[in-house]
């Protein structure tokens, strides 16, 4: 059985991993895990980024995606670096999930997710509202590793 929410997220469910660069310029390896709960009423995203050399985690967050009364996606998000916020779906191309919301410190966060073949492209940006204070856009290109033995496997 599918729900309107699951019909949007079904291709993303599972485990994804790939290089990520934060707005600070720090590079790492990002892992994302999408899973649905309560018969597809909510989709949970757990994301971590760790240092490639040491394995030390330097970014972590969890988001819960649900549908609002108008059929648009709402994400309740916790990111360790920013705290709690709510992102609302904004208009974009049909194959893009774009979300935007306000952070506690006055920044606005915009996030976009696009699935291209077996690659998930995640970008995010923090904007301050003050000209010239926008932070660089972060980009993560993630591949799913749950449909095959990875190329590194013996």
């Amino acid at each position: 059985m599918t729900t309107p929410l699951l019909s949007r997220f079904q291709p993303m469910l599972g485990f994804w991993r790939g290089p990520n660069e934060l707005e600070t310029g720090r590079r790492g390896l990002m892992e994302m895990h999408f899973q649905s709960h309560f018969e597809g009423e909510v989709v949970q995203l757990d994301a971590h980024t760790w240092d490639i050399a040491t394995g030390e985690t330097f970014s972590a967050g969890t988001g819960l995606f649900a549908l609002g009364p108008d059929g648009r996606i709402i994400e309740n998000l916790y990111v360790e670096r920013f705290g709690f916020c709510r992102l609302d779906e904004t208009e974009d191309e049909p194959d893009v999930l774009a979300l935007r919301g306000d952070l506690p410190d006055g920044f606005t966060m915009s996030v976009s997710l696009r699935l291209e073949a077996d690659e998930l492209l995640l970008t995010s940006q923090l904007k301050s509202g003050v000209v010239g204070m926008d932070l660089p856009r972060t980009v993560a290109r993630l591949r799913r590793y749950d449909r095959q033995r990875g190329e590194g496997a013996k």
Partner: peptide
């Protein structure tokens, strides 16, 4: 039931 080990 939960998918584990990268879904494998």
């Amino acid at each position: 039931f939960v998918a584990g080990l990268d879904g494998t």
